[in-house]
């Protein structure tokens, strides 16, 4: 069992040793290892996305009492491959009057930010690309950058509807940034550090979901809004009315936006399971398998919510964030403070 547990760690140690044996200095070896790890992350993301798109269609099918895609391959497994090929072969139009530079870079920026989120995520026992001591802060700040990419996409395509749609989703994402960050403060207060591996280590006897149930719920709601999913899918909804930020995109560029959305989803669910469900802590299975199971459980929760609820109206959505979520998270922080004070008091 131990062998499988540290499979990847041994692999990277062996790799560095092998590079040094070839006479490559240590600094260079680390750099190459970093590159390899980055490529692994990209590989993980692509694998996840293909599984996720298929899973979303299967879950929505099962909820609606229909089997979901089952024609291409066993249980429709190759459905996502077919979708990807379709999008690849679709004609990629760039409308003439758009601001070309911004129009092109928007999806790329969106995708890079989403991929960069994975750097700090602990994939398993000391299996992190970089273990920043401000990991959580890095994650949240990067998460808010995606809003800019969306605005660029909407404004760049120089179309009245996509501008309106972009404005709407930007307003939504900004107003849900605050409860997103605030609801994590509780966890940070308990562990006393922003380093993700510390947070995971602090959860070895009790998971933070038990200590911070309210924070879990508020973070989950804010994350759904952040990802434009579930009851908050404002831009994708009234396609005719506000046309969403992606209207002018087509072919591979639209696919990039679509993939970035799912990468964001995986990143946020991985963070959720790291912070509240004890990351890679788990009794028998190897650590990196635990994080995968928990992340997919959280993603099932996201899909389950999406396919059950109707859409919230724009003004209810904003009111809900400012008048309900933010006060609740603030109260939660104060309560955690009291709890800690009393706990520290008793603990001596």
């Amino acid at each position: 069992m131990q062998k499988i547990e540290t499979l990847f760690v041994d692999l990277s140690d062996w790799f560095i040793a092998w590079l040094q044996s070839l006479g490559v200095p240590l600094a260079w070896a680390d750099a190459i290892l970093l590159l390899i790890q980055f490529l692994c992350i990209v590989g993980i993301i692509l694998a996840n996305i293909t599984i996720l798109i298929w899973l979303e269609r299967k879950v929505s099918g099962f909820i609606q009492q229909r089997p979901g895609p089952n024609r291409l391959g066993p249980h429709g497994v190759f459905q996502t491959v077919a979708d990807a090929l379709k999008l690849l072969t679709k004609e990629d139009i760039i409308p003439s009057k758009t601001d070309r530079l911004i129009f092109i870079t928007a999806p790329i920026l969106f995708m890079t930010i989403s991929v960069m989120l994975y750097i700090v995520l602990p994939m398993g026992k000391d299996m992190q690309v970089v273990d920043l001591n401000v990991g959580l802060f890095f994650f949240i700040s990067l998460g808010s950058l995606t809003t800019i990419a969306l605005l660029m996409g909407g404004w760049g395509s120089n179309n009245k509807w996509s501008l309106l749609g972009a404005m709407r989703s930007v307003a939504q994402m900004i107003s849900y940034e605050i409860p997103l960050a605030l609801s994590l403060m509780g966890v940070v207060m308990i562990t006393g550090s922003l380093r993700l591996s510390d947070i995971v280590a602090a959860q070895d006897n009790v998971w933070f979901i038990l200590l911070q149930p309210i924070a879990f719920i508020t973070y989950f709601i804010a994350a759904t809004a952040e990802l434009n999913r579930g009851p908050f899918d404002m831009p994708e909804a009234e396609q005719e009315l506000t046309a969403g930020a992606y209207t002018e995109y087509s072919g591979m560029r639209y696919a990039l936006f679509f993939l970035a959305e799912y990468t964001n989803l995986v990143a946020v669910s991985a963070l959720l399971s790291t912070l509240f469900l004890g990351g890679w802590q788990g009794p028998w299975l190897p650590s990196w398998l635990w994080i995968i199971i928990k992340t997919y459980l959280v993603m099932f929760l996201f899909m389950w919510v999406k396919w059950t609820f109707p859409r919230i109206r724009m003004d209810h959505l904003m009111a809900f964030s400012w008048k309900v979520l933010i006060p609740v998270t603030l109260v939660n922080i104060v309560a955690t403070g009291f709890g800690l004070y009393i706990f520290k008091g008793i603990g001596g």
Binding site: Q64, P231, F309
Partner: peptide, 9 residues
């Protein structure tokens, strides 16, 4: 209103 599952039931 966005609840596709409602329609199918």
């Amino acid at each position: 209103l966005g609840a596709t599952t409602g329609l199918l039931y």
